[in-house]
C-alpha cells in the first residue's frame, strides 16, 4: 500500500520535473516486466517436468507412436508396477534410509562443532574450518574408488550406513557452515545469563540454545537431506543389491527388452515427490537458508 502511494507521488513529481524516463524505470512498466520474466522463467523450469509427468501417464505404444501433448488414454500402470514390485519400491526405502541416517548424523555432529566455531577462538580454528570446507568442494569422483575399498574393508559395503557415512564428507562441513551462521546471530549474553542462572552446558544447549536456532537446524537438515538425496555417484558405487538407491534402480529400464520409457518417467516423477514435499514444509525458510543464515 505504501509502495503505491510512494510511486504515485514520485509520478507527480517526475511529471513536473520532466524526468519521464526515470519515472518509467521506477514505476509502471517495471511491474509487468517483472511478471513476464518470472512467468517465462517458471515455464522454462516446469516444461521438462511437465513432459516427464506427461510421459509417465502414457503407454509405451503411445509414447513411441508420436508426439502428444497430453495422454490420450491415461494409464496408471507404470506407477502400479513400481508400487507392487519389491525390487522397485525397496529402492525408495533404501534411499530414504540412508538420507535420514545421514541427516541425523550430520546435524548431531555439526551442532557442537558449529557452537565452538561461533563462540570461541582456539588453536588452528581457521585452518580447521577451511579444511572442513574443502571437503565440501572435493569432487566425489575422486573418492569413489577409495571409499569402495574402505567400506569393503570394514564390512559396511552395500549397507545404508556406508552411503550415509560417505555423504557426511560433504554434508557435515555444510551443516557446520550453516549452523555457525545462525548461531553467530544469537547474542552471547544469553550463554552468560544461562550460566549465571546455574544451567550446566549440556542443559543450556538443549533447553535454551537449540530452540533459539530451531530455524537454523531446520535449514541445515533441509540442505543435508537435499544433497544426500540428489547424490548418486557415491551411493551407486557403495551399493550393489541390498542398499541400492532408487535412482540407480532406474537405469534398469534401459537394459530390459527395448526402452521402457513409461516406467522410466514414472520412477523419475516419484523421485521428485519427496523433494517437493520437503520444500513445501520449509518454504518460508528457503530464502534465508539459501543464504546460509548470513544475510
Amino acid at each position: 500500500m505504501t509502495d503505491t502511494i510512494a510511486i504515485g507521488t514520485a509520478d507527480r513529481k517526475d511529471a513536473k520535473t520532466g524526468t519521464v524516463a526515470a519515472n518509467r524505470a521506477l514505476a509502471g512498466p517495471r511491474v509487468n516486466g517483472k511478471a513476464v520474466v518470472m512467468t517465462l522463467y517458471l515455464v522454462f523450469l516446469m516444461l521438462p517436468i511437465y513432459w516427464l509427468v506427461n510421459m509417465s501417464l502414457k503407454t509405451n505404444t503411445e509414447i513411441t507412436s508420436g508426439l502428444t501433448l497430453w495422454p490420450r488414454q491415461i494409464t496408471f500402470d507404470n506407477y502400479i508396477r513400481i508400487f507392487t514390485d519389491q525390487s522397485w519400491y525397496s529402492g525408495y526405502i533404501n534411499s530414504l534410509t540412508y538420507v535420514v541416517i545421514n541427516t541425523v548424523l550430520s546435524i548431531s555432529f555439526a551442532l557442537p562443532a558449529a557452537y565452538a566455531f561461533s563462540r570461541y577462538r582456539f588453536l588452528g580454528d581457521k585452518h580447521l574450518f577451511f579444511w572442513l570446507l574443502t571437503n565440501r568442494m572435493a569432487p566425489p569422483a575422486v573418492f569413489a574408488l577409495p571409499f569402495f575399498n574402505l567400506y569393503s574393508a570394514i564390512g559396511l559395503f552395500d549397507t545404508p550406513w556406508a552411503v550415509a557415512l560417505a555423504h557426511c564428507l560433504f554434508n557435515i562441513p555444510l551443516a557446520v557452515w550453516i549452523l555457525e551462521g545462525f548461531m553467530s546471530g544469537v547474542p552471547r549474553e544469553i550463554d552468560e545469563t544461562a550460566a549465571i542462572d546455574g544451567y550446566s552446558f549440556p542443559r543450556f544447549f538443549v533447553k535454551i540454545f537449540m530452540p533459539l536456532i530451531a530455524s537454523g537446524i531446520g535449514v541445515a537438515a533441509f540442505f543435508c537431506f537435499m544433497f544426500s538425496w540428489v547424490e548418486l555417484l557415491l551411493a551407486r558405487t557403495l551399493t550393489t543389491v541390498n542398499a541400492k538407491p532408487i535412482a540407480a534402480t532406474m537405469t534398469r529400464t534401459i537394459s530390459a527388452s527395448g526402452m521402457d520409457w513409461g516406467m522410466l518417467a514414472a520412477a523419475g516423477v516419484l523421485t521428485i515427490v519427496p523433494g517437493a514435499l520437503v520444500i513445501w514444509f520449509v518454504r518460508n525458510y528457503i530464502a534465508k537458508g539459501f543464504a546460509l543464515g548470513r544475510v
Binding site: L42, M46, V230
Partner: peptide
C-alpha cells in the same frame, strides 16, 4: 517452491 524444485531432483534423474 517452484524455483527450488529442480534443486531437489536426483542428479541422474
Amino acid at each position: 517452491v517452484l524455483m527450488a524444485l529442480p534443486l531437489l531432483i536426483p542428479w541422474n534423474v
